[in-house]
Design a protein around this nucleic acid. Structure first.
Length: 590
RNA sequence: GCGCUGGUAGUGUAGUUGGUAUCACGUGACCUUGCCAUGGUCACAACCCGAGUUCAAAUCUCGGCCAGCGCACCA
């Protein structure tokens, strides 16, 4: 079994995740998180929230999963997510119609052409099926949209779509969100939520699915003035796999600090570099193996149309590199689009330190002259004069001024134009913010964390499987066991478990079978600590304990990774466990 | 979406001249067990779905669904 298979088996057996609706044959690309998986997902989301919202001083929102069509017309998903496909009647292979047209003709951007035209181009150019060379001349060109479509309300007059990314829910609400940020750049808005893509072929359990959770941050910045606090991350070492490195033969990763990456220009955007640094430490915190991790730069050909520089965080599993986060500098693309399509204001007013006075040439044409002189063209002449004043105020220096009207030059006396140069005080300007976007795939993070946490070792000549999860991420914090369920050990342990639960810990109580078996159960779900109530806890002088030195009201605490045990007092135990989980205390300190 | 391979208790598996299913782990109960999958007894639990062939289908045929891999796809 390879890593992925072992993980899938463990995930199903122990309740991390499994195919959804299996009773009805299931549906490809949909997974249910079981009790352990849902808890792990919550913990990872909480850790993300802690770092990218709370510590970063950003705000979190929750937008709808369904949005009306115009949102996706503006975002470009309606066209961009809509693939033109043509199916070969001979071999049945499906191809991107626009791609084969681009490959076989001089036409670029075939995607923007209507389907019928693409079909005609295929026929008239005799483009064959790339798989079997059969003629595609009479094959219809169809659309396949990766977005799930639905209807809002009765009938089909109001189409809606399940969002293919959470980001648009932030962009579309920018005017309101900006208001909440008191219109002060920079500010960040985060969202953790579901996104949906009707993928052609879901693969590799949680890696490519049709419904998934994204954790996205949209950091809105003033491109002219705002700088990331690079000094806080400049010494963080990044494993960078630049475009240049990818094209070189050895294809090796280069270890470089954030500071060096910015200085040498390997990462062109300071903002992206900043987030790579933040994210790298965060990945380590949630348990991703930094020896199986890299940041890969998008090659020029794979860059999205809106992005200038883009890096993916990738993790290695079974020799494959899986994208777990995309870091994009999206510029002002998204806000511009929504401004254009909605007509609303997606800018921020940026006040100057000092108001500035500018000279602005203006015209105030004498319409009672232009009207009789130019008739129906009078307004066009006035507009042309206004444009000329802005472009070339010197043209108004003489007695007459000429403007171009539909290729014809017309002349107007300057004294009829009302030309003047006004002094105007400007207090600031409207700018469209740029956006820096780290976008995390939560399911893929879970998959990676589990794969990297999966460990086997040997205890007393037996193979032991355990998940080396950081205590903070572990679905269950502590297992509580009586050594045996008799002589009051069980009652004592149940009370202990209850007390820990009331203190907010995620506790599993288990009195079934031998103690070793119970430890192994917890090992497999990554529970970092187990507490065992034994006879010494009760003050029973029988057995192993030194009767002269009985430590009543103590329990043993066992560490998952080392299987080492220590004896701790039940006084303040909830707090001790909390400090262990929080990393303020190590097991060795006990 | 195409192709290849596969689908048997919760998990991993055995099982082709067609006759209702093997083993292990697991789960539960009881006994044993004074700290790392103890031993014992008992119990629970499966042939992916549908159609066809047949007296009879886990087994043969067809279709579907699902999984893994390859191709394609991944604004």
């Amino acid at each position: 079994m390879n890593e992925g298979e072992r993980l899938t088996e463990l995930a199903k057996r122990r309740g991390f995740y499994f195919p959804a609706a299996d009773a009805y044959g299931g549906a490809a690309g949909f997974w249910t998180y079981g009790p352990q998986g849902a808890a792990l997902k919550d913990n990872i989301e909480d850790a993300w929230r802690d770092r990218f919202v709370v510590q970063a001083g950003h705000q979190e929102i929750s937008a709808p999963d369904v949005m009306p069509e115009p949102v996706f017309e503006a975002s470009g998903h309606l066209d961009g997510f809509d693939d033109m496909i043509v199916e070969c009647g001979e071999c049945g292979a499906t191809h991107r119609a626009d791609h084969i047209v681009e490959d076989n003709t001089d036409i670029e951007e075939a995607e923007s052409l209507p389907n019928e035209e693409v079909m005609e181009i295929i026929a008239s150019n005799d483009i064959p099926c790339p798989s079997c060379q059969a003629s595609l001349a009479d094959e219809p060109v169809d659309n396949f949209n990766l977005m799930f479509e639905t209807n809002i309300g009765p009938g089909s007059s109001s189409p809606g779509y399940l969002r293919p990314e959470t980001a648009q829910g932030i962009f579309v609400e920018f005017p309101q969100l900006s208001e909440y940020a008191r219109n002060q750049l920079p500010f960040g808005v985060a969202q953790i939520g579901k996104a949906y893509r009707n993928e052609i072929s879901p693969r590799k359990s949680l890696v490519r699915v049709r419904e998934f959770t994204q954790a996205e941050l949209e950091h809105f910045v003033d491109p002219e003035e705002d700088e990331p606090p690079l000094s806080t991350v400049e010494d963080v070492t990044l494993p960078l796999y630049s475009g240049e490195r990818q094209q070189a033969d050895d294809g090796s990763v280069e270890q470089m600090t954030v500071g060096e990456a910015v200085e040498t220009g390997v990462v062109t955007s300071d903002w992206v570099a900043y987030y790579l640094g933040i994210a790298r430490d965060w990945y380590e915190r949630i348990g991703i193996d930094m020896d199986r991790f890299r940041f890969r730069q998008h090659l020029p050909g794979e860059l999205a149309h809106y992005a200038s520089d883009c890096w993916d965080a990738e993790a290695e599993i079974d020799g494959d590199w899986i994208e777990i986060t995309g870091f994009a500098y999206r510029g002002d693309y998204d806000l511009q689009k929504h401004a254009e399509y909605s007509g609303d204001d997606y800018t921020v007013f940026k006040q100057y330190d000092e108001p500035i006075t500018v000279e602005r040439p203006t015209v105030d044409p004498e319409m009672s002259y232009l009207g009789p002189e130019f008739g129906g063209d009078a307004q066009a002449v006035a507009d042309a004069l206004e444009q000329l004043a802005a472009d070339d105020p010197d043209a108004f220096d003489g007695e007459e001024v000429s403007v171009d009207l539909d290729g014809e030059s017309v002349t107007v006396p300057v004294d009829q134009t009302g030309f003047s140069v006004e002094e105007i005080t400007e207090n600031g300007e409207h700018i469209t913010p740029h956006v820096v976007e780290p976008s995390f795939g939560v399911g893929r993070l879970i998959y990676t964390v589990l794969a990297h946490a999966y460990t086997e070792d040997e205890v007393d000549n037996e193979t032991r499987t355990y998940l080396e999860l950081p205590p903070e991420q572990a679905p269950t914090t502590v297992g509580v066991f009586p050594l045996m369920d008799r002589d009051g050990l069980g009652e004592y342990a149940r009370q202990l478990a209850e007390g820990l639960r009331q203190a907010g810990h995620s506790v599993t109580y288990d009195d079934s079978g031998a103690i070793g078996r119970r430890y192994r159960r917890q090992d497999e779900i990554g529970t970092p600590y187990c507490l065992t109530v034994d006879y010494e806890s009760l003050g029973d002088p029988e057995g192993d304990a030194d009767p002269e030195n009985l430590q009543t009201d103590t329990v043993t605490i066992r560490e998952r990774d080392s299987t080492a045990q220590k004896r701790v007092s039940i006084d303040g135990l909830a707090e001790t466990v909390e400090r262990l989980v929080g990393g303020e205390l190590t097991f060795d300190d006990l």
